[in-house]
Design a binder for these strands. Structure first.
Lengths: 230, 230
DNA sequence: TTCGATATGTTGTATGCACATAATAATCTT
DNA sequence: AAGATTATTATGTGCATACAACATATCGAA
């Protein structure tokens, strides 16, 4: 009874949920009751329950009380790392090669995504990421030079566009899409894979303060796996 | 400043980080100083910073202070829904078909994953998930019948194994792997796709209280995208 | 009776104080 | 100079109090 940290209580409550003491969608006792049961202040219970709510284990509503989440959806958190770190984590030597670098008006799909006026030029960058000089991933990217003009002067042979952006425009928000596609001719060539191979794609568009910064597709070589606990 | 203080302050601090006031990996002022600056109690600042720490924006260490996270990794949260909900969210009618249901000793790879003794029988289930009677996803699964014997009596024609498990063994933990593979003959057939098509795979193994429950591969039909904010 | 406004109580939310704890820096001891 | 001890200074935690929102009950007028 004395291990009163909200962490401990949180775990205890989680256990009780997991053992089925409170069924899916069922109301669990109020904070006051739990506080009494655990011999702690209501606030401490509150913290525990809020934590569980953050993790999507319970849903809380004023006056409605706290109930076990009946959502059958599970949340998984992923770390989306910088490619170089992925490579180096595998014990390989990282290198990258910029295979294209042009400024021009992007296709309308990209133009829309970046919220650009028609005809506005952007920077197109294609990069091959190498692990021990073998292709690891192929990246094709458009950067909104209005938002980040400094990238035109960045030494992109030394630092990858991704890393430069992360360091320059940190904590941008955005969205990510994961999907699988058959490698087209260009991707297959860049990755040294056969055409039609199943490649894992991360498609990311990032923005900061309402302004779109960059949009990118990252094609991983065959067999790549994105792993996560849940 | 009314009630939402710590949320407000949290956002304010995030803004200051995003505008580059404090650089990557750099120390930000201590709680006391910020409390003074914002005219609130230290605890309120603490809450704000803890929130940011939860989101991986800052790292906090006792005595070491709080610093902007220098990890270039970004966290993305995904909801991994039940297939039926995905289908119905698209406005289609969901149906599923169990194409295989046998009890036998699994291959060693599965045996290992489920932590079974050699020769232990398990339940193998193959299911095709249909959207408007068109194949949407193909699921192949092994269930540890030691852990969940009740599944042998479950009406798996009415309720999918996935849903049955979610309702029966909620909040199990486990891990997930996403990857892309070329459809083999069996998968292609089940999905009505061509052999070699790039399919998105979710590979999940779940456990509860140290006991493995089930392992599953879910093959989505071509073009499937997993979407997330970050 | 019926409808609607208002009172009321239950439950989650927010804040600030006092104290605990951890990690480092400074100091003392040998 | 090396090791042990104490001081300092950060963040972490528990608790009490005040607050706000929501559901329901209650009351009064048409």
């Amino acid at each position: 009874m004395s291990s009163h940290s909200h962490h401990t209580i949180r775990q205890a409550i989680l256990d009780r949920i997991q053992t089925g003491e409170w069924a899916l969608g069922e109301l669990i006792p109020g904070e006051a009751m739990l506080a009494d049961e655990y011999g702690c202040a209501r606030t401490t219970i509150n913290r525990a329950l809020q934590g569980l709510a953050n993790d999507g284990v319970v849903i809380r509503k004023r006056k409605g009380g706290t109930r076990v989440c009946d959502m059958p959806v599970r949340q998984a958190k992923f770390n989306i790392p910088v490619v170089r770190e992925q490579v180096e984590a595998l014990g390989s030597v990282y290198r990258h090669q910029v295979t294209r670098r042009v400024e021009k008006a992007p296709p309308t799909a990209v133009q829309k995504r970046l919220g650009l006026a028609p005809g506005t030029k952007s920077l197109q960058l294609d990069t091959v990421h190498l692990a021990d000089d073998r292709p690891f991933a192929f990246e094709t990217r458009w950067v909104n030079t209005r938002a980040v003009p400094a990238i035109l002067d960045a030494p992109l042979d030394e630092i990858s566009a991704n890393e430069w952006l992360v360091q320059t425009v940190p904590f941008s928000s955005g969205d990510v899409v994961f999907c699988a596609v058959n490698a087209g001719k260009d991707v297959a060539e860049a990755l040294g894979a056969r055409e039609g191979a199943a490649v894992f794609v991360i498609d990311r568009t990032t923005s900061l303060a309402g302004e779109f910064i960059t949009t990118m597709q990252l094609y991983y070589r065959e067999g790549y796996q994105l792993h996560s606990q849940l």
